[in-house]
Design a binder for these strands. Structure first.
Length: 344
DNA sequence: CCTTATGATTTTTT
DNA sequence: AAAAAATCATAAGG
């Protein structure tokens, strides 16, 4: 109501044609049929179109001129009529705003994956997670390792957020434009604030449908990532050569007691770029497998014993060099209970 | 393909 | 709770 009144007053103030919509049809037609050149109307239209391009003073003057034009009432009535028609036809489409279950689902998923999550902390939260994992002190069992996974996830997250921001910015920019345009035009054209509002709504819906696409594709990416990493975390990837070397070195140089302390494990983990639990796994596997078939590991044992011996001791005794590597064990852990055959 | 090596997981033992 | 042992599942090599 208020809107209506405001609009009306605006129109009236501009043109003083309070009774535009009633009887002027005939006038217009009369004028037209009287042979008044059609060019006249074309001119007016053109001038109206050009209004926004002009400076305010110019426009003001031009507007005044237009309002005093004898064709103005007719044109205005036509516009009113057209508008009424379109409003009628649009009104049916007005029903809207179902809280889209689809988009809710996507939102929830993104939230659960930590993509759209507490977004101020986007980078910092991820960084914190990384730091916690890297610090090693965390209860770093098998659940959230795979820095690869996290890196990819944060990458996706970054893309998602920047895109989202872009969309939002574009949306508000566009909305502003449209609103300004409509407001500007509402001075010469019958446009109610409600209509502007509706227009904004339409724009927002359009943009949010675009956003949904973004969300959808982000979801897809996350799903793919998950299937490739988390679900495949049971998939085995061999450690690199250097890592196994470090581990073996430790194992064979502590063959009498191959139970690294927590600190030692952490250090090994760091050196090998694996997790502490992986170190534990490795030692568990190694111990049982070594014990189960010492013979099979003899060669390896010698190799690493030699290595560490050479590494640690310079040259203490020449004769023992051949001997000591073959029997590096001195304590409770199962010693090779047979004499090395393949060795020199 | 089949076999072996190997990292991870599950179950059992201590 | 930690280690041992059994088991699983895949990588890697012939």
């Amino acid at each position: 109501m208020e809107d209506q009144a405001r609009m009306m007053s605006g129109l009236v103030g501009l043109s003083g044609l309070s009774q535009v919509d009633v009887g002027d049809h005939d006038a217009g037609r009369k004028q037209h049929s009287l042979g008044q050149p059609q060019q006249d109307i074309g001119d007016i239209l053109q001038q109206i179109m050009a209004i926004t391009d002009e400076s305010l003073d110019e426009a003001q003057a031009r507007k005044h001129a237009l309002n005093c034009h004898r064709m103005k009432p007719a044109l205005f009535s036509v516009l009113c009529e057209i508008k009424e028609k379109t409003v009628l036809s649009i009104r049916g489409i007005q029903d809207e705003d179902p809280p889209d279950p689809q988009i809710m689902r996507l939102d929830n998923m993104l939230l659960a994956e930590g993509v759209s999550g507490p977004e101020k902390g986007g980078a910092s939260a991820a960084a914190a997670a990384v730091a916690a994992a890297a610090a090693g002190g965390s209860p770093n069992d098998g659940s959230i390792e795979h820095s690869d996974y996290r890196a990819k996830l944060t990458q996706i997250r970054g893309i998602y957020h920047s895109e989202l921001e872009k969309y939002e910015q574009a949306c508000s920019e566009f909305t502003n434009h449209v609103m300004n345009l409509l407001r500007e035009q509402s001075r010469t054209r019958p446009i109610s604030p409600k209509e502007i509002e509706r227009m904004v709504g339409i724009i927002h819906r359009k943009f949010s449908s675009i956003q949904m696409q973004l969300k959808q594709s982000t979801c897809e990416a996350v799903m793919i990532l998950r299937s490739r990493f988390l679900d495949a975390r049971r998939k085995r990837r061999n450690f690199n050569k250097q890592a196994t070397e470090v581990l073996n070195e430790y194992f064979y140089s502590h063959l009498s007691n191959p139970y690294p302390s927590e600190e030692a494990k952490e250090e090994l983990a760091k050196k090998c770029a694996i997790t502490v639990s992986q170190v534990s796994n490795w030692f568990g596997n190694k111990r049982i497998r070594y014990k189960k078939n010492i013979g099979k590991f003899q060669e390896e044992a010698n190799l690493y014993a030699v290595k560490t011996a050479v590494d640690a001791a310079s040259v203490s005794s020449q004769a023992s060099q051949a001997n000591s590597p073959a029997t590096p064990n001195s304590g409770g852990y199962p010693a090779p209970c047979y004499t090395p055959d393949g060795m020199l």
